[in-house]
Simulated assay, not measured.
Amino acid sequence: MATRGANRKKLQPVQLPLFPDSAVLCRIRPDLNERRYYRMEVWPDLFGRALLMRQWGQIGTEGRQRTDPHPDPGAALNALARIARSKHRRGYRPRP
């Protein structure tokens, strides 16, 4: 007879990121007929640097896109946090 715990899988700990490497923000103001989004992601490149991809526009469209190179992932994450704070001051909120 097998023990009850023998069939259970051991759970592996999950390391959550300390700093988010992506953000999706939106600003919806129906009284002004405004529905906008702003999306950012940090991507590694082939040379050990990092890219900050930014995309923005009206919700439901592809919008515009810009990719900014940074010397390392930490610099890209700092830029992401700085831009997210700026957008928050302008009324953007995390996507619900």
Rank of each mutant, 00 (worst) to 15 (best):
T67K: 11
N78A: 09
G74Q: 13
P69Y: 06
G63N: 01
A84G: 14
A75T: 09
G63Y: 00
D72T: 02
A84K: 15
Q58N: 15
R66V: 11
H88W: 01
T67Y: 05
A76E: 03
R66Q: 11
G60N: 03
G57H: 02
R89P: 09
E62A: 12
R85I: 03
A84P: 10
E62T: 15
Q58L: 08
N78C: 11
R64A: 14
A76Y: 01
R82P: 03
R89L: 07
Q58V: 14
L77I: 08
H88Q: 15
L80S: 01
T67H: 07
L77R: 14
A84C: 12
K87P: 04
L80V: 04
A75N: 07
I83G: 07
I59N: 01
R89I: 04
R89C: 01
K87F: 08
T61K: 02
P71T: 12
A81S: 14
Q58T: 14
K87W: 11
G63E: 00
R90I: 09
A79F: 00
G74A: 10
A79I: 00
D72V: 08
R66Y: 06
H70P: 08
H70E: 01
H70Q: 02
A76N: 04
A84Y: 15
D68M: 02
N78L: 12
I59L: 09
S86L: 05
I59V: 11
A81P: 06
N78P: 06
H70F: 00
L77N: 06
D68G: 04
N78Q: 13
R89V: 04
A79E: 08
S86C: 09
I83F: 00
A84V: 15
R66K: 10
G74H: 13
G91E: 02
L77S: 05
A75L: 13
S86M: 10
G91L: 01
G57V: 00
G57Y: 02
H70R: 05
R82C: 06
G63C: 05
G60R: 11
R89W: 13
H70W: 05
K87Y: 05
L80T: 00
G74P: 09
Q65E: 14
A79R: 02
R89E: 11
R82Y: 07
G91A: 04
G91Q: 04
H88L: 12
N78W: 14
D72F: 15
G57K: 00
Q58R: 12
G91Y: 01
I59C: 06
P71Q: 10
G57D: 02
L80M: 03
G63D: 05
G57W: 01
G63F: 00
R66A: 15
I59G: 08
R66M: 15
R90E: 15
G74V: 05
A84F: 12
A81E: 03
S86D: 07
S86N: 08
R90F: 13
R90L: 10
A81G: 12
A76M: 09
R64G: 13
R66C: 13
K87A: 00
G74T: 07
N78E: 07
A76K: 06
L77Q: 07
Q65V: 11
T61Y: 13
P71R: 04
A75I: 04
R64D: 13
L80H: 01
G74W: 12
R89N: 07
A84W: 12
G74K: 14
I83V: 12
L80G: 00
Q65M: 14
R85Y: 06
R85G: 12
G60F: 10
A75V: 04
N78Y: 10
A81N: 06
A79D: 08
N78V: 09
R64T: 10
R82I: 11
N78H: 14
